[in-house]
């Protein structure tokens, strides 16, 4: 696990609902400690679902739901989970939540379900989910865990949405299915087929990581 457990601070009774410390729980993963670009987790799905904005958005919302809810569940159970089977317990909770998401999509957004079904299932293996459970939820109170999960998932969400934005506009000339290129330049603008294939996602993701690390000055230490 590339994150370290955040030391549990002594929470005073009167801590504000969104105190500075709690705001940091949400804001840190958005940039300085981003799960995708800094911790380099969840790359698999970041490559797979990002050819278009719409499925990416559904994926992002699903991951937010799963991370927040599993963080909440594990945090509530943290004092009862036997440590010897904790990984299996986490897995069972995450798998249940993922199945729920998949079932709901199948009932209410069948087109999305068809497009995303495999990748929704693979949220189970998204390292961000288990990473947050191990590193945070097992040792922190429910409300903090929700914030932490929300922050991490949001950090993942904005990165994959950014990747999807560039891939869709260069690969298909559209944004959310709306044909931007056609509107602006007329019908015959060539799109870049590379962007539609997973290779395109690697390139975009690499560029985002490059830009971000240049700005934050983050360097990986061995």
């Amino acid at each position: 696990m590339s994150t370290e457990t955040i030391d549990k601070p002594v929470v005073k009774e009167s801590e504000a609902l969104l105190s500075k410390r709690r705001r940091k729980l949400i804001s840190d993963p958005l940039n300085d400690d981003n799960p995708v670009t800094v911790q380099v987790l969840g790359i698999c799905s970041a490559l797979a679902v990002t050819t278009q904005m719409k499925p990416t958005l559904v994926m992002a919302i699903s991951v937010i739901f799963v991370v927040v809810m599993s963080n909440l569940a594990i945090s509530l159970l943290r004092n009862t989970i036997p440590s010897r089977v904790r990984i299996i317990v986490q897995l069972a909770v995450v798998a249940t939540l993922v199945t729920l998401v998949s079932e709901f999509l199948k009932a209410f957004a069948y087109d999305m379900y068809k497009e995303l079904s495999v990748f929704i299932g693979l949220i189970i293996t998204n390292c961000i989910v288990m990473g947050r459970l191990e590193a945070f939820a097992l040792g922190n109170k429910p409300y903090d865990s929700i914030l932490d999960g929300f922050g991490s998932a949001l950090g993942y969400a904005w990165i994959i949405l950014a990747v999807a934005f560039f891939r869709e506009i260069w690969g298909s000339g559209s944004v959310f299915g709306y044909k931007v290129f056609e509107e602006v330049f007329g019908a015959n603008i060539a799109t870049n087929g590379l962007m539609v294939s997973p290779v395109g996602a690697f390139i975009i993701l690499g560029l985002i990581i490059w830009v971000q690390r240049t700005k934050t000055g983050y360097v990986e230490h061995n």
Partner: peptide
Amino acid sequence: LGPKQKVAI
């Protein structure tokens, strides 16, 4: 959700 899924399919 079963009936709803059947309709969707």
